[in-house]
Amino acid sequence: MAVTRAPGGVGFWAAAWVVSQRGIRRTLRTPQIIVMGLVQSVAFLLIFRYVFGGAIGTGGVGYVDYMIPGLLTVSGLFAGMSAAVAVAEDLASGYVDRLRSLPMPRTAALAGQVAADTVRVALILTVSAALAFAVGFRVHAGWGPALAGLGLCVLFGFAFVWMFVALGLLTANPQAAQGVGFLALPLSFVSGAYVPVETMPGWLRGFAEHQPVTVMMDSVRVLTQGDAALAHGTGYYVWRALAWTTAIVLASATVAVTRFRKT
């Protein structure tokens, strides 16, 4: 970050911390944001576990153990969607303009917003993971790798929070931002989250195999179920997931910072 302190003002990290606290308080004062995120995650969990699970073959891995890593990855993606609406609302309400008038680095506002939304994503993922064990999910590769898999889900959610923040700044309208957020639906369903990509048509399989959601859920799957769950070793999937996450953060943050400075 080129500017770490505004003239006569506070530093970048101090300003980002204050903004993130405001975002966390806003979430706590509107608990329906977390509740709706959990309801969506639980609904998908129950539907695919008890309605579709018996009809979907996953080879040597039980369906619940196959599906949960994908569900957690998608939950992190969906949990980040509200970041687009929050940023657009801040622009429309004049909150961002008030921040601009303060002696603080402008990009600290973005960093604080992303940090607050990532805390919310982590909370939703933690509760979703706990519920997964209640419906039969089990770890077969040790608790250390499994916790690393949960950490990857949070990191992936962090990356998509940046993407949704960028989309919220580009739309600058709460209603439009909410609509744009649903562009995440194709990424979640055209993936290996709920069904093996091998069952998809050839023209669709290539996209489903290599898009970021599938890459991330494969890494979480191998961390929770072991190398036998997939064709390659753990390192292969984890490094691919980290590469995608880094690319998403860099691209989204660049767009968000550029747009924020122009608005």
Rank of each mutant, 00 (worst) to 15 (best):
W13M: 01
R221P: 06
M200P: 08
P186W: 03
P174V: 12
L170H: 06
F133I: 05
S82T: 04
V213W: 12
A184S: 15
I68G: 00
V42Q: 11
A231Y: 05
G142A: 12
Y194N: 09
R261L: 11
G60I: 02
F158R: 00
I34G: 03
F182L: 15
V85P: 05
S82K: 11
Q225H: 12
G192D: 09
G11N: 10
Y236Q: 07
Y95P: 00
S93F: 14
G202Q: 15
A256C: 11
R26I: 11
R100F: 10
V249N: 05
R205E: 14
L185W: 03
A130L: 09
R22L: 04
S20E: 03
A146F: 05
F189C: 08
I124P: 10
G59S: 09
V121S: 01
A6G: 02
V255Q: 01
D227W: 09
D65S: 08
Y63D: 10
A256K: 10
A193P: 02
A241T: 06
S82Q: 08
T245S: 15
S188N: 01
V215N: 04
A130N: 04
L150Q: 09
D97F: 04
L99E: 03
A115S: 07
W239P: 01
G149S: 07
S41C: 12
G157S: 09
G144R: 14
W239D: 02
V215A: 04
L102N: 13
V215I: 13
I56T: 15
V190C: 11
P174R: 11
S20N: 05
F137A: 02
V127A: 14
L77C: 14
S75H: 00
A111V: 15
V121D: 13
S188I: 03
A129R: 05
R29Y: 08
P196W: 04
G60K: 06
